[in-house]
Structures are given as structure tokens and as C-alpha cells.
Simulated scan of single mutants.
Amino acid sequence: MLTVPIRQLGESERAQVEKILDRDPYAGAQIAERVAAHGLNWWRSDGRIFGYGPGRRVESMIWSGAHLVPVCTTPAATAAFAEVLGAEPRICSSIIGRSDAVLDLWDRLGGHWGRARDVRPNQPLLVADRDPAIAADPEVRLVRPHEVDALFPAAVAMYTEEVGVSPLLDDGGRGYRRRIVELVKGKRAYARFVGDRVIFKAELAIVTNRTTQVQGVWVDPEFRGRGLAAPAMATVVRDALRRVSPTVSLYVNDYNAPARRLYAKCGFVSAGSFATVLF
């Protein structure tokens, strides 16, 4: 019999959920964006948010849906979440969050869910809250709606290179294209063009009132090593800080030394470590 103090959360616990998300605005950004837009009842159609704590108090939480995202989890909370989730089939495509929580979860869930396709145990979490000291690239700008066809092949190339599988596999890329269209319409996709060819791209994949998380940073292989990325990224950071959120955050694979040097040039500093388990 399950004895852990854990329950599915709904709109009546929204204030407690928001308080926990504020305690870690970077690990909780993906959840915070959607709760702000839709409330907690929306999750019932796309996943579940579980809370951990005695009585009606919520001390830790986890979203179980397309991704598994723990926020402010203690070891006891992680064990409780794993006990519940391990009794069910896996529905998530990844586990993402603070490395200690993610790796503890995976240690407990791996025996139930089988092998992962990839485990990335140390992904430095980086944050910038001021303009980069380096000059920006004036050729980098927001992508316009009519330019989605030009952006999409670059986005597919980035995703395939970073994740290790093509986003075209499941549904021919229709879902992924809808996401790219959404980002462009929301003025959250940046690129530098040479003619109709995208040679740099990045997106503000998550936006909250505390941070915007940059993902999808990519330079065309033909243009790598030319010093293009740092000024391009400086443009993204400047615009995001002015127009979107008070901080810009991202996480990067620890072995990607060129990317880490790039982000350091743009003023990003350490805010801990993420981990990702990919299925």
C-alpha cells in the first residue's frame, strides 16, 4: 500500500505551486510558463503535477507529462515520486531538471522503465542578467512569419545534432513545425540569414516573469569557427533582457567546450547543474 505523502495538485493549490516555482525559477521555468498561461486544471489533459508534503502543505513537486520535471525535490520527495511513477508505464520522452534530483529519480526508475537512450549527467546551468560586454551582431534579428520555410531545415538540423534523433520521425515533422511556427509568431525565434539560408538560429523556448530559457542555438557547420556565434548570441541576450524577461538562462552539455566559451563571452555565469535523461 502506498504510504507516501504525495497527491495530484489542482487549481486550489495554485498559490503553493507558484511559491515553489519561485524558489527555483530556472528548474521550474517550463512548468511556470504553462501554469501562468493555463492554470493547473489544464495539466489534466496533458499531464499531471504531483505535490509532496504533509497534510495540505506542498514542499516539492514534479510534472509528469511529455517530460518529467522535478522542482525543489528533497531526497524523501524524490523517493516518493519514484514510488508512484515507477508503478506506471513511462509516458515521458525525457527527465529534465537539477542534476541531483534527475539522477536520483533515474536511479530509482531505471529498473521499472528500462534503458535510456542517453543520460547527460552534468549540464551546466547558466544565467545572464545584464547586457554582454561584446558587440552584438546587427544582422541577427527576429524571424518573420513568411520565413518559417527557411528556418525549419536549420531547426531540424539543430535538433537532430543535439538530441540524436530527427524530429521528423514520428509524424513527418508536423508537430515540430507547429512549434517553430508558434515561436516565430510569438517573436521568440532569432536568425541570421545569408540570402534565404539560415546560418545562425536560437529561440526563447520558455518565457516566464523571472527568466527566458534559450534553446536551439545553432550555427551552420560551414560557418563555424569564424567568430559568428558570440556576437549573434549577444544580440539574442540583449533583446531578450530588454523585451522579455529580467534574466536569460540556458543549459549546455559539459563536454561542449566551444559553447561554454561562447556563453562566458556573453556574460553567462553558473547557476548550478542540470541533467537530462533521454528515451
Rank of each mutant, 00 (worst) to 15 (best):
Ala234Trp: 00
Glu162Asp: 10
Phe152Cys: 07
Leu183Glu: 08
Ala230Ile: 01
Gly173Met: 06
Lys201Ala: 09
Ala116Pro: 04
Lys187His: 13
Phe200Ser: 04
Gly111Val: 12
Ile134Gln: 08
Ala155Trp: 06
Arg224Leu: 07
Gly114Pro: 01
Val163Ala: 04
Ala133Met: 09
Ala189Cys: 13
Thr212Pro: 00
Thr211Ser: 14
Ala232Tyr: 00
Thr160Asn: 09
Gln123Leu: 14
Val217Lys: 02
Asp170Cys: 07
Leu125Arg: 08
Asp149His: 07
Leu183Pro: 01
Asp129Ser: 15
Val217Ser: 06
Gly111Gln: 11
Gly216Lys: 02
His112Leu: 08
Val237Gly: 02
Glu162Lys: 09
Val184Gln: 09
Tyr190Trp: 15
Met158Trp: 15
Gly173Asn: 03
Leu142Arg: 14
Val143Ala: 05
Ala157Asn: 04
Pro138Lys: 12
Ser166Asp: 01
Arg141Ile: 03
Val198Gln: 03
Phe200Leu: 04
Ala232Cys: 05
Leu183Lys: 11
Ile134Cys: 10
Ala150Phe: 05
Ala135Leu: 03
Ala191Trp: 00
Asp170Ile: 12
Asp220Glu: 14
Arg188Met: 06
Asp196Phe: 10
Val237Gln: 01
Leu125Gly: 04
Val140Asp: 02
Asp149Ala: 13
Pro231Trp: 00
Leu151Lys: 00
Leu169Arg: 15
Ala234Gln: 01
Gly110Ile: 03
Glu147Cys: 07
Gly225Phe: 04
Arg130Phe: 04
Ala189Arg: 05
Arg177Asp: 05
Arg141Asn: 09
Asn122Arg: 15
Thr160Ala: 09
Val156Pro: 00
Ala157Met: 08
Ala154Gln: 05
Arg120Thr: 10
Val198Ser: 02
Pro145Gln: 09
Pro138Val: 01
Leu183Asp: 07
Asp149Ser: 13
Asn122Ala: 15
Ile180Thr: 05
Val207Ser: 07
Glu203Arg: 11
Gly172Asp: 07
Arg224Lys: 12
Ala154Ser: 10
Val214His: 00
Asp171Phe: 12
Glu203Phe: 14
Asp129Tyr: 10
Ala157Val: 05
Gly114His: 10
Ala157Gln: 02
Gly172Glu: 02
Lys187Gln: 15
Ala135Glu: 08
Ala116Phe: 07
Leu183Val: 06
Leu228Tyr: 13
Arg130Asn: 01
Thr211Arg: 13
Gln215Met: 10
Ala116Trp: 06
Thr160Leu: 08
Phe152Met: 14
Gly225Val: 03
Arg210Ile: 03
Arg174Lys: 14
Ser166Val: 04
Arg178Asn: 14
Tyr176Cys: 01
Lys201Cys: 04
Pro221Val: 04
Gly110Tyr: 05
Arg188Phe: 08
Ala191Ile: 05
Ala189Pro: 07
Glu203Pro: 04
Pro145Ala: 05
Arg179Phe: 15
Asp129Thr: 06
Gly111Ser: 10
Arg141Lys: 11
Ala229Asp: 01
Arg192Tyr: 08
Gly114Cys: 10
Glu147Asp: 12
Tyr176Gly: 03
Glu203Gln: 12
Arg179Pro: 06
Arg224Trp: 12
Ala128Lys: 00
Leu168Lys: 01
Asp149Phe: 05
Thr211Asp: 13
Lys201Ile: 06
Val165Ser: 14
Ala154Trp: 01
Val163Glu: 05
Lys201Met: 13
